[in-house]
Design a binder for these strands. Structure first.
Lengths: 175, 175
DNA sequence: CAAAATTTTCAATATAAACTGAAATTCAGA
DNA sequence: TCTGAATTTCAGTTTATATTGAAAATTTTG
């Protein structure tokens, strides 16, 4: 009974379903999953065939994975077609995703917060006061998140793991 | 020149645009933004009016915010209509979002990983070996993430802030 | 340089998700 | 229990996004 393929497919499907939550499309995530559990580099055609997706889709998704830095394209000796290998270390994948999300999600918020705060001198009254206060609180928070993501994006597994363990073990701090 | 309203609107629009990245719809995020910068509780009608959205949309979004724990519904004394107040502390909002994302995103992955690993005894050969290895690595990673999110979801601002600062200040650890 | 192989692009299409608005239901007060 | 106010639901519509597939562009080889 060949269950291996069944589980591989299931894994790919589930990983793909999670994709949108991590800031990638289902197709991008499915290809990523396929490459993670593949021993050898795969060509665009193999990927298209394996996941039943179009050439255009496979192409775009691979390009995105390469841009994110979690897949590399290579042309094996003596071949014409390009093949792709996926980063297998989940920690490295995580760091790449952090970098991407920081750039796409956190930096734009900081920009708008700074823009609003820069103009805050022009506002007057209680109404303005509490709006600005709220923005200041948000900025403290987003700044901290930004720095953390920056750090994670450029750290090694060991650093992050140690840090994670530190939090999990920590006691509740008094207010 | 009344620029305050302009900036408030811009803030709401930008916050809303980020919503999908945090696992909520644009409408949910816009209402959240509106409540964050509002001094007083708002009724469904005020929200509909303020953001130009339908009753159904406002209703569903508010329900979701309440479920996530970052908005509360109250009926002010002497009123008939329900009013909503948003959680203003970004750190508490962050904790709530963590709880939600852990539940919706991390736990399902753990479930599939465990399911695959439970069945792994039935697989044989090199192919199976490397698939299982990969799953084990993933599980180590996802488990760590799960614990971290659990902890964050139940921590105070002080704990998290200290922890964040610890990472930002930390030196690169040797491999 | 021409032909074949491969990659890239993009307009059209399909898919999925969110939103609307009106009808149904629930609720509170008389 | 009746009535008007408020909330909730949901089928239909809209909107946004992802995917297809074939044509165009590029690259490789003889």
């Amino acid at each position: 009974m060949e269950k291996l393929e069944f589980f591989k497919d299931e894994f790919i499907a589930e990983w793909g379903a999670l994709g949108p939550a991590w800031g990638m499309t289902r197709t991008v995530a499915r290809i990523h999953a396929l490459l993670m559990i593949s021993d050898k580099p795969l060509t665009t055609d193999e990927i298209m065939d394996s996941l039943s997706i179009s050439r255009g889709g496979a192409h775009g998704a691979l390009k995105e994975l390469v841009t994110m830095g979690i897949t590399k394209g290579t042309i094996p000796k003596g071949e014409r077609k390009e093949s792709y290998v996926g980063e297998k270390d989940p920690w490295k994948v995580f760091c790449s995703i952090m970098r991407e999300r920081k750039r796409r999600e956190v930096e734009p918020v900081l920009a708008i917060l700074n823009r609003c705060l820069a103009a805050s001198g022009e506002f007057h009254g209680d109404d303005a006061r509490s709006f600005i206060d709220q923005l200041v609180h948000l900025k403290e928070f987003v700044d901290a998140g930004d720095r953390v993501m920056e750090k994670i994006g450029t750290s090694e597994r060991g650093t992050i793991l140690k840090w994670m363990m530190a939090l999990v073990k920590s006691k509740r701090s008094p207010r």
